[in-house]
Design a protein around this nucleic acid. Sequence first.
DNA 1: GCCTAGGGTGAATGCGCTTTCATGACACAC
DNA 2: GTGTGTCATGAAAGCGCATTCACCCTAGGC
Lengths: 350, 350
Amino acid sequence: MYDVAERSGVSIATVSRVYRNPDSVRAQTRDRVLEAARALGYVPSGNARGLASRTTGVLGLCFPDYSDPDAETEAEADDTYDDSAVMLYSDQIIRGMERAARRHGYALLIAASLKGGPESLVAKVAGRVDGFAVLARTVPTEDLEVISRRLPVVMLAGPREIDHLDHIEVANSDGERELTRHLIRDHGLRGLVFVGGEKDSPDAEARFRGFRDACAEAGLPVPDEPDLRAVMMTQAEGERAAEALLDRADQDGGRPQAMLFANDQMAIGALHALERRGVRVPEDIAVAGFDGIPLSRMVRPALTTVRQPIRRLGEEAVELLVQRLAEPTREPVSLMLPVSVTRRASCGCG
Amino acid sequence: MYDVAERSGVSIATVSRVYRNPDSVRAQTRDRVLEAARALGYVPSGNARGLASRTTGVLGLCFPDYSDPDAETEAEADDTYDDSAVMLYSDQIIRGMERAARRHGYALLIAASLKGGPESLVAKVAGRVDGFAVLARTVPTEDLEVISRRLPVVMLAGPREIDHLDHIEVANSDGERELTRHLIRDHGLRGLVFVGGEKDSPDAEARFRGFRDACAEAGLPVPDEPDLRAVMMTQAEGERAAEALLDRADQDGGRPQAMLFANDQMAIGALHALERRGVRVPEDIAVAGFDGIPLSRMVRPALTTVRQPIRRLGEEAVELLVQRLAEPTREPVSLMLPVSVTRRASCGCG
DNA sequence: GCCTAGGGTGAATGCGCTTTCATGACACAC
DNA sequence: GTGTGTCATGAAAGCGCATTCACCCTAGGC
């Protein structure tokens, strides 16, 4: 910048103005500066700019690191590669945030939490953005506590761990209840089983609660626990779960009339397993998922599911950040995004 | 930081060392500093750090802004929403880069080029990262010329516009040639038609060249132009293209034996159109795409395609950046990533 | 003729950190 | 006792920019 100033015979203040506020500089001067900048290959330092102006024009996103980055190459080579739900999930959030951020003139800095570093990730992101979003269970609550004192943080999908933070969640419980109601009421199904996730997955648990509520409403037996729990909730686990439930049914004598899964990945796996076993969907058994991932529409039969506005989650996160940036003192906001039951062939609709 | 230093009775230099090089500080001092930092809610400024150390720990990605961010909400609500190829494409690159960047301890800054701003995007990204990747046709060549004098830039997918830059492309032409050969040689198909993209899409053009080469090899008529050109190469365009080709065939009398599309999205659209028209795939006609997107495996019949290592593109980009950061003076590298023909049901295999 | 207003520009300060370089405090060997 | 390292720390000089304030110049009003 000093070089540019010298070459064009102005002061650095003027060079700065050319970039920050072009109209305040005479056109002739401006052109001279711009030309010098080009000749010198001048690239304004975002760091210096950020330091001086105390704002970066960047928003951040921290998401969990479920997948092992080193397993990458292997998976890539495999045609039956199973895109995990988490992966699709963060992709969509990234896209949502990126879009919304762009609309507001922000760039997006993304980083998956590396479990290794002490606070490496958060520190790196937090120090470099005007505000950021955190996926549930990504950053230790105590760190968030500290950071949120300095800049806006919004928590995504999951319980609100810190009261004074903005927070967005999805109506998991409502959605699953609605879906279950549909199966019971509109299709007259009775023997319902639910495949959930681990206990510490807030989403999966909320969905199970919705399932239970609907069962209770309908006067059906109310389970204390999901019939099965999956760990990563992958397609492969869904296949195994479906087979396990079928095996169990063969022993018990009574095959369930509907299998509900805590996410679409598992439900799609189940579809495969059922096809192999010669069990027809939806004639012999209904299947439903949760999430509304693109694949759910492509499989045959198309999967009945609950569409979750994941991308909107990302977009709303940005909106909240932008709003808080504009008005730092306003009350913390907690949004719950609505979901919608998508009825397709796998439950007997469409 | 000054506050932390004061509160813990040390100098700012020591506070800095606690974060940069913890071992060089006595454990007792370190603990005092860390405690003070926690009490004060201290978050190191990435900007200041970057300014002083002349390195950010962030890599960047600029990708094109094909989709209109404001059309978002509408599209989201539509169950038949057509994920465009471009969208999936950039998602995968982002993921690839993110993974690789993480492995090397970098975060990732992403920004789609906003056509509006003068150089807003690039300037924003370029000034904030240690190096970055650019998708073809995203940033004006002249800007790249300037920026690349200051920091490492790698060009992705597309012709190498600037000689001294690192560059990665995908063997589009080889892949399509291989695929076409397969159809001609292994399935004995003859009447082949090709649906391409616009002339200024380097990928689509390269694929068409591969198609032509294979036709020439086999002694078949060699077309000068694709039989049809799509603009955005979406699924909807694929449907229309298939119908147009069918209509044309009805007039000519001779239906083609195989339809090749410049990407999977169009091929999948074609599958739908053919099904509607009662044309059986692959019995009546073979269909093939290009890209190897996840959907290509899910559709029925499963789509024969050329798998493109998009994610690897992102990963390799990061590798190249990291290498150049380590050794700035080394010769520019130009990689061509291999692709592989994936034979599935839509050509008569599997 | 002088005075004023305002647009265009420069000098100087500080943003919060990293990084020499210098200093002090010891421990050890001579 | 003096010399020679070593380790822990402090002082101070930037890093590249935004921004305030003061200044100059010109045009306009009287």
